[in-house]
């Protein structure tokens, strides 16, 4: 009896619980600690992706605007191609360069009349492939955001359930119903859920935003590809 009471007293006061976030982490169960670590890493990586994507999408949009201005300004396409170079860094220019390269390669030996349809199909194909490649590059890592967004909360919940399980076991062990015995454990456990939410919420928001942006970029690329191939085919017909 006495011993029990002493144990209780110590577990109530002895811990002198440090309720700061770091204190909560240090005092947590090992499983909960691992969960927390994983969540922190997930949060770290997803923020890295978010920052990277924000910068990249902004740059892509700005570069594409610039390129489109140049493209529609009515200058010579050959000049533009020379200026843009063989491997530019924005998808629109890339699309343009790929198509122009194919065009140049096909026309350097002169055009047979029969070659028109073949050339058009080839250019179309090349642009298609380029779009796919660019999109793939843009959406790299987005899957990770989606995964974090949907699983981080569950992972945090797991940590919480585990921590609360421990808390209740400690009630059972000390046979003490005082809230002071359970409260620290529950606080630690809930901290895991908090971390899960902290990781998941930005990831979900960012994922939705980025997939919207990506969709817009794809639409733009396809629109440009269509217009450009129309221009090329008009040129082919005029060149006859």
């Amino acid at each position: 009896m006495e011993k029990e009471a002493i144990v209780v007293a110590q577990s109530m006061g002895g811990s002198a619980h440090d309720l700061s976030m770091i204190g909560l982490f240090v005092q947590a169960d090992i499983v909960v600690q691992i969960v927390m670590l994983v969540l922190v890493l997930a949060s770290f990586w997803s923020w890295a992706i978010i920052i990277d994507k924000i910068l990249r999408f902004r740059r892509v949009t700005a570069d594409s605007d610039e390129f489109e201005n140049e493209f529609w300004s009515g200058g010579n396409l050959e000049d533009l191609h020379r200026r843009v170079g063989p491997s530019p860094d924005n998808p629109l220019a890339m699309l343009f360069a790929a198509a122009m390269k194919e065009w140049a390669r096909s026309t350097e030996k002169g055009l047979g009349k029969t070659a028109h349809t073949g050339l058009q199909a080839r250019i179309h194909q090349v642009m298609r492939v380029t779009i796919d490649r660019e999109v793939e590059r843009l959406e790299k890592y987005l899957g990770f955001l989606a995964t974090v967004g949907s699983t981080a909360t569950f992972l945090g919940l797991f940590g919480t359930v585990w921590g609360i399980m421990n808390s209740f076991q400690s009630i059972a062990a000390t046979k003490d119903t005082s809230l002071a015995v359970v409260a620290p454990g529950i606080a630690e456990a809930l901290f895991a859920t908090a971390l899960g939410l902290v990781a998941a919420i930005p990831a979900v928001v960012a994922y939705n935003k980025f997939s919207n942006d990506l969709q817009r970029i794809i639409t733009r690329l396809e629109g440009f590809a269509g217009e450009f191939s129309a221009i090329l085919s008009r040129q082919l017909d005029q060149g006859d």
């Binding site: 700061s20 976030m21 770290f44 990586w45 923020w47 992706i49 978010i50 910068l55």
Partner: peptide
């Protein structure tokens, strides 16, 4: 990807420090 990772690390360290020092 290195720069964003660095930025993210800095962000998280900042939050950690804030929590430790205690706003």
């Amino acid at each position: 990807m290195r720069v964003p990772a660095l930025a993210s690390a800095v962000l998280h360290m900042l939050i950690l420090v804030i929590m430790y020092v205690g706003l």
